[in-house]
Design a binder for these strands. Sequence first.
DNA 1: GTTCTTTCCTGCGAGC
DNA 2: TGCTCGCAGGAAAGAA
Length: 279
Amino acid sequence: MVRAGLEAHVTGRIIASAEVLHPRAVRRHVPGAADFAGRLAGVKVEAARRRGKYLWLDLADGQALLAHLGMSGQMRVQPPGAPDEKHLRVRFTFADGGPELRFVDQRTFGGLALADLVDSGGTPVPDTIAHIARDPMDPAFDLAVAARALRARRTEVKRALLDQTLVSGVGNIYADEALWRARLHWARPTERLTAAQARAVLGAAADVMAEALAAGGTSFDALYVNVNGQSGYFDRSLNAYGQAGRPCDRCGTPIRRDPFMNRSSFSCPRCQPRPRGPR
DNA sequence: GTTCTTTCCTGCGAGC
DNA sequence: TGCTCGCAGGAAAGAA
């Protein structure tokens, strides 16, 4: 959705300037903020692309402007002169004098960087994210291959789902929802997944992502390119994540919260029984 | 080579 | 009322 907004509002335009208002926003651009701004001035934007949680703009000079929104990042298109957002981090102006592109990020987990484009399985991607796997919504995503890779891991299934080198775009929320749909407990050892279970949980992840994307689209308008996490989908459609104590939508058993990697995992104790026995 | 832990940051809500 | 505390999230880097 964010990608589509950028495609519609930024593609074909020439960047006039990039103003970095918070150095942390470009911390992953190693040469620094001045280099970042200097190399973007006068460059044309050719396309907007996405892989997993990364988003980037193809630039006419063969580079890419790479963005990760973290959890609080937004890309906004605003008329010049619109009041600065409280957490405005980077402002892009364009040679046509039209709307600005703004990177806004409260918690500064997100960031921007410039990268060279390299080939990854026939697709040009920024070199710094070439290790990131295709996401389940990518037309070239191969479910059978990903399912085999998932079963080849030696860890808990949720840890594997969150590993972006195996499958990308799945975060804590989508992982819990996919596991609920596939009726798998988050701690199930990957080596004990059947082939059908591995395919099911990955397919469920794809479904959840597609539904979230479709729901997020409802709040899109010309001036608000990002659809940030809080939109309707999260309140209405979650079966497991954040639902501790509420009845499971399948069986009515209260959803349980477990500590997991310094955060939480939510699951139905009845539909998703904890694995037993030795690994 | 693979897997696991720590750390970055800010706003919010709960509890005192 | 105002303070502190814990929590939320993704991924890089270092540790095991």
